[in-house]
Design a protein around this nucleic acid. Structure first.
Lengths: 326, 326
DNA sequence: GTCAATTACGTTCTCCGTAAGGATG
DNA sequence: CATCCTTACGGAGAACGTAATTGAC
């Protein structure tokens, strides 16, 4: 009373060979067992599918009618299995990742490019979103995992630290602090500061530090790092920006200066839902994340601040070209 | 290692209910068995399809990918089974029949009309062919069975007598024999006779009788019974025609007269291939054939020859109308 | 008589159910 | 601790293979 793929295969084999003996061999069973299989199939579908005697085997009219469906069933099964197989071997698949704009500007695209080169059949989707939205996308399953400075709650999310990156002071090249090899947070006392969006993780993390340093909040609050750069350039104040976001905010008239404070770093986590499988493709990308982390612990002091602030990170080549650095 | 329809159903049930307990009930198995079924399915496809703990059940990315195929597989299986079921219940199907023109002119169409009214979903195909071609069509399987005056060899064909029908003399109304209630073959001695096609069964059967009666062969040899009528009307001679062919050949100026000779009858067989199944629809029509046979053993003598020659057959109403009979 | 499909029958293995185990909220 | 999925284990039935039977040419 149940159609199995095995019986469908038996039907197709007998349809093609028109010989029980040959079809049985193809199905790796004895002629006796094969005969019983055909009998079970006919019982299952409720119709005689083959006219046969010891000499000839041929399809009945019902067998002809069933043949169409049998081929389709076999093809669908085959297609389903091979798709899963292709997904397992990363020949096909889809991975969606959410990350903050500071990481989607350069670091993550480089990483994705390498992954895509290795697995061109896997479709990649990258959501550049602020921290809260990143967690929401992970939670809803719209993305396979997220990369974020803010870790979610440990009940729903599994957050693994990827790396920490330093915050840097961004100011005009003509600023008094611009020529310093490094500055301390305390050095910023009394300075006007332009903030990034309060829903982003940067603001949430730098706020305590800045408050402690007794800076002056200009009240300006921008979503785009590019806008931030414009405000600083126009003299609205200085800002504190994580290293991998510099690309979006720096320009010729601005300078990034390392902060000496050890606490002036932000963590970057890879974040996935607990108790939820990743596809093979997503898992491969998830596992590839740590490998692309480069040591950025100590920006080299001295030299033009811009260059020294980002010495060994992967963003350097493009940034160096853009600035015409040495 | 083997996908069964049962496991596909289990997948669909769990996908929909997202509860092992409920899905198990739907599949009429215990929760334990159902859990094992899902396990077997996952082993068969080589991928985990559901993320589950004691609280939540959800599809993995592979599960989502497999879902599409699973629905298609289930649909194909369902479609195949229901088609066979519809064929068995005569809701659908196809029957092809071969028969000589003398029977496809009226008798068989009436029969088919009744069958079609009972089973409107069954497509009917009727081949009007001469005797030899009829057997060839049956042999090749192009038709499900044939109705024929010539039986095939008993090794390949199974031939069952449906009925016998009388031959009648067809002549001009002004013929000397036209007013007779019946004639004997011997009465035809010396008369010119127009023949039907030599490959047809009529010629093959009437030839010995005519030869014995010492008639004059005009050499005319026509394929269409209508042509035969025209030739007779124009005075080329008389002819001998089986009863159910009269419709095609009679006209106002012609008369059919019963032949008294007991041997002047021809058999009509239903013929199918041995050791070959018929579809349910074909079998139903095959079985319906004898029921529509009406007694035509003794044409009633006296009265206008035309009317009396075809007293109780099913062709009468139409013929009566066409001729404006009493 | 020979070859091929089927049936008979014993064995193996799959599959299910009951019951115990374990994890989650 | 209550619920739900899973594992353990034993039994019923399915499925297979060997061997005997039937049937066609």
């Amino acid at each position: 009373m149940n159609l199995s793929g095995r019986l469908i295969d038996a039907f197709l084999a007998l349809e093609e060979t028109r010989r029980f003996v040959l079809a049985a061999r193809r199905c790796h069973v004895s002629p006796s067992a094969f005969s019983q299989m055909i009998g079970r199939l006919e019982a299952a579908v409720g119709a005689r599918l083959f006219d046969r005697d010891t000499r000839n085997v041929s399809l009945t009219p019902d067998g002809v009618a069933f043949s169409v469906g049998a081929h389709r069933i076999a093809a669908e099964i085959q297609a389903s299995l091979s798709e899963l197989q292709q997904r397992a071997s990363l020949e096909t698949g889809r991975v969606a990742v959410a990350a903050p704009p500071s990481l989607t500007a350069d670091w993550l695209p480089r990483l994705l490019a390498g992954f895509h080169a290795r697995h061109p059949g896997v479709a990649l989707r990258l959501h550049d979103v602020v921290s809260d939205r990143c967690l929401a996308l992970v939670s809803s399953g719209e993305v396979d995992f997220g990369v974020n400075a803010q870790r979610g709650n440990d009940i729903e999310f599994e957050s693994l630290l990827l790396f920490t990156e330093p915050f840097l002071l961004v100011c005009r090249r003509d600023d008094a602090l611009a020529q310093r090899a490094s500055v301390r947070m305390a050095d910023l006392k009394g300075r006007s500061v332009v903030q990034t969006l309060r829903s982003g993780s940067v603001w949430q993390q730098t706020q305590p530090l800045l408050a402690k340093a007794q800076v002056v909040d200009t009240g300006l609050d921008v979503a785009q790092l590019g806008t931030l750069g414009g405000l600083i350039e126009s003299g609205f104040g200085i800002s504190i920006v994580p290293q991998r976001a510099l690309l979006l905010c720096l320009r010729a008239s601005l300078v990034a200066v390392p902060l000496a404070d050890a606490s002036a770093r932000r963590p970057i986590y890879r974040i996935r839902r607990r108790r939820r499988s990743l596809s093979a493709a997503a898992l491969a990308l998830w596992d590839a994340l740590p490998e692309s982390v480069q040591d950025d612990a100590v920006p080299v002091p001295g030299g033009p601040a811009l260059d020294s602030a980002i010495p060994q990170t992967s963003v350097r080549p493009r940034l160096a070209r853009a600035k015409g650095g040495r």
